[in-house]
Amino acid sequence: MSGIKTVSFIGLGQMGRPMAKNLHEAGFRVVGFDASEEARLEAGKSGLIVSNSLEDAIRDSDCIVTMLPNGDIVQDVLVSNDRFLSAHKGALLLEMSSSAPLQTRQLSELVGTHLRVVDAPVSGGVKRAIEGTLTVMAGGSNEDIESSKPVLEVISSKVFSCGPVGAGHAMKSINNYVSGAGVVAASEAVRLGTEFGLEAETIVDVLNASSGKNNATEVKMKQFILNEAFSSGFALGLMSKDIGIAADLAKSLNLNLKNLEETDLMWKRASKEVGGSADHTRMFEFVTTNSDSKN
């Protein structure tokens, strides 16, 4: 278990709670915190130690994991009133939220005299969080990423070292751009085929046996969309946010990526019309509703 014995887990929502539970069951002393009393109560039922105070949760911690909605909240939670100083000097901060890469670099500068920062966002959704088979995209020094592996390997099946601090969050936004574009393409494909007279299930089966196969056709169309369950566990607004991070990164690098821009705009519209809290697989409803010709 290397030198990490106590892990402070900040953010006990749908993703954070099973991740923290897996660390607890692996033998780490896990102290959880969430601003939501309901989330704290649910985590306590899982056998986790839960603190009502963030400062107490990270006090004397060897490793802080943040699993929060965005980088603004991470900075507010840790940097405000220098709360991060409660942790051991030299402790690891594993920033696993979906944050903007340049903001993550700023965070590293703010806390870097006290904490070693590795940004380590994940992909895989709630099901793989429960299984401990998430994919982790890590950014930081080689030494710090190596130090973090005893924790990361409990909650994931694959850990990719992507580069310096910020690289993990850059990779996460790129991944979700491709994922979100795939959901749109698969939804439009089904709309096109069914309008012609094909069966939706047949379309998906053929795509999955052919070169059109992607994550949306494999693990979303039949499981969450065609059966109208819309319960993948990942919000439409979060997907939109992540794609927006990729679009903003492209602009900051002076890149003119038209498909990324269009995908970003489409998910923003869907988030507004369908609702950001809706499951992201409801993009299918947005696509089908807006697919009729206006001419």
Rank of each mutant, 00 (worst) to 15 (best):
K5Y: 02
K5A: 12
K5C: 00
T6C: 01
T6R: 15
V7M: 10
S8D: 04
S8R: 05
S8K: 05
F9V: 02
F9T: 02
I10D: 03
I10L: 12
G11R: 05
Q14G: 00
Q14K: 14
M15C: 06
G16R: 02
G16Y: 04
G16N: 06
G16S: 04
R17V: 01
R17S: 12
P18S: 05
P18Y: 06
A20H: 03
A20I: 07
K21Y: 01
K21H: 07
N22V: 06
L23V: 10
L23W: 08
H24I: 00
H24Y: 10
E25A: 12
E25G: 07
E25T: 08
A26F: 07
A26T: 09
A26S: 15
A26P: 08
G27K: 05
F28T: 06
F28D: 03
R29V: 12
V30N: 10
V30Y: 11
V31S: 02
G32W: 12
G32H: 09
F33A: 03
F33Q: 04
D34G: 13
A35L: 15
S36L: 13
E37K: 15
E37D: 15
R40Q: 14
R40A: 14
L41A: 15
E42Q: 15
E42F: 12
A43N: 06
G44Y: 10
G44P: 11
G47P: 10
L48A: 07
L48T: 09
L48W: 09
L48M: 11
I49E: 15
V50M: 09
S51T: 01
S53G: 03
S53T: 11
E55D: 15
E55K: 14
D56S: 13
D56I: 00
D56N: 13
D56V: 00
A57V: 01
A57L: 02
A57I: 01
I58D: 06
D60F: 12
